[in-house]
Amino acid sequence: MLKSFVMNDTTKPQVRFFTVTQDDDGQRIDNYLLKTLKGVPKSMIYRLLRKGEIRVNKKRTKPEYKLVAEDVIRVAPIRVSEKQTTVSTQLNVVANLEKQILFEDDRLLVINKPSGMAVHGGSGVNFGVIEALRALRPQATMLELVHRLDRDTSGCLVVAKKRSALRNLHEQLREKKVQKFYHALVKGRWSNKLTRVTEGLKKNDLKSGERIVVVDNINGKESETRYKVLQYYKGATLVRAFPVTGRTHQIRVHCQTKGHPIACDPKYGHPEFDAQMKEQGLSRLFLHAASIEFNHPLTNNRIMVEAPLEPSLQKLLNKLTQEKP
C-alpha cells in the first residue's frame, strides 16, 4: 500500500516520509493520513496540514489535495500511537474466521460473516470482522470493507486488499452492478404475487439513542426490494430478497410492513412468532446474505460467491413442516 522510511533515532518522534503508490493514486491526502498515521487525532492532522508540517513534494498542501502516484509526503516529527485494537483470540468466532473465507485472491476476499459479530469496532464493540482479519493477517498491507452487513445478519461480506479494488467495487455499487441476494425466514404465508416492495424508508433516532427505520413515503428515501418464495412452511415462509437499493434495515422493514416480519428480529419482529421460533431452537435473526455477484476488479469477469447457511439455521428449517405452494 505504501513505502516509507524514517530518519533519526527510533526512540524519539522522527521525520517520516511516505511515497504514494499507484494503489493510492487519486485519494485525498487527509483520508490517506488518517489511515496511515494510526493513533493521530483527525484534528491534529488538519492542524499539521494547515501549519505546513505535512508537505507533498516539499510544498504545502490542503486537506482536499488528491494524491498522485510517486508523490513524496513529508510528516514532521510527531508522537504517533501505534496501539493496535486488541482482538481476543479466545473467542471462537474470531479464531474460526479463517475458515469462513469463501473466496480470496490478491485483490479481495469474501467471508461468510457470523451472526452477532459487527463488521467493525465502535459503539461499544471493541472489535469487528475487519479488525479481526487485520489481526489474523498482519502481513496484509491493506484490508478495507467494501460494504456492510448488520451485526445480526450473517453471510457474504467483501473485503478489498487493494485500494484500486476498493474504488472499483464502490463504483460498481453506485452503478448497481453488484447483486446481493438474502435468505430470510418470515412470519406467515408470503404471497407468490408479492414480488416487489417499494415503501420509502426514513431513519429515526429514539431518545434512548437507538436507531430505527420507519416507512415514510413522503419524507423517506426511495427504496426497493424484490422477493421470491423459496419454500413454504407451517406458519412461515423462506424468501429470497434482492435489495435494489441499499437502505439501512431495508429488507427487515419491508418484510415487517407487509405483515411478514423476519424471525427473531429484535427491532421489527413479532413476539409470538419469535417465541415459536425460539422454541424450535432459533436464537438469532434469520437473515442471511446468501450470495453476491460482481465484476472482478482486475479481469472484469462476472463472479458469484455463495455462503452456506450456518448449521443453526439449517437445523431450524429441517425441524419445520414443509407445505406445498
Rank of each mutant, 00 (worst) to 15 (best):
285 L>H: 07
274 D>T: 03
73 I>R: 04
166 L>P: 10
223 S>H: 07
250 Q>Y: 14
157 L>S: 10
283 S>W: 00
272 E>K: 14
202 K>M: 14
236 A>T: 01
124 G>L: 03
47 R>T: 15
85 T>P: 03
273 F>K: 02
214 V>K: 15
237 T>R: 02
168 N>K: 08
223 S>Y: 06
200 G>N: 11
212 I>L: 07
42 K>H: 15
116 G>C: 02
84 Q>T: 15
124 G>Y: 04
15 V>I: 10
133 L>N: 11
44 M>R: 13
221 K>W: 00
16 R>W: 02
220 G>D: 09
70 E>I: 02
273 F>E: 03
234 K>R: 09
121 G>H: 01
184 A>I: 08
125 V>E: 08
241 A>E: 06
213 V>R: 08
113 K>C: 06
264 C>R: 04
108 L>C: 14
136 L>P: 08
112 N>V: 12
184 A>M: 03
315 K>P: 01
48 L>M: 10
105 D>T: 13
59 K>L: 10
183 H>Q: 14
10 T>G: 09
303 I>L: 10
300 N>W: 04
286 F>G: 01
63 P>M: 02
219 N>T: 10
197 V>D: 09
141 T>A: 15
191 S>Q: 05
114 P>F: 05
57 N>S: 07
251 I>L: 14
49 L>M: 04
80 V>P: 06
310 E>S: 11
196 R>L: 06
260 H>V: 03
222 E>S: 14
203 K>V: 07
295 N>Y: 12
175 E>K: 08
315 K>E: 09
134 R>D: 09
257 T>L: 06
224 E>G: 00
81 S>G: 09
178 V>L: 10
218 I>F: 11
226 R>A: 05
101 I>F: 13
232 Y>S: 02
15 V>G: 02
293 E>G: 04
119 V>Q: 03
151 R>C: 01
180 K>D: 14
61 T>L: 06
225 T>M: 07
96 N>C: 10
201 L>R: 14
154 S>R: 04
246 G>I: 05
165 A>H: 00
55 R>I: 04
132 A>Y: 12
237 T>G: 03
31 N>G: 12
286 F>D: 06
91 L>Y: 11
120 H>W: 08
170 H>Y: 01
252 R>T: 08
155 G>K: 10
225 T>R: 08
197 V>L: 05
271 P>V: 13
66 K>G: 07
232 Y>V: 01
92 N>D: 14
78 I>A: 09
316 L>Q: 01
271 P>Y: 12
163 R>E: 15
311 P>F: 11
188 G>H: 06
204 N>T: 14
154 S>D: 06
35 K>E: 10
210 E>S: 01
171 E>D: 09
293 E>P: 01
28 R>K: 13
16 R>M: 01
52 G>F: 05
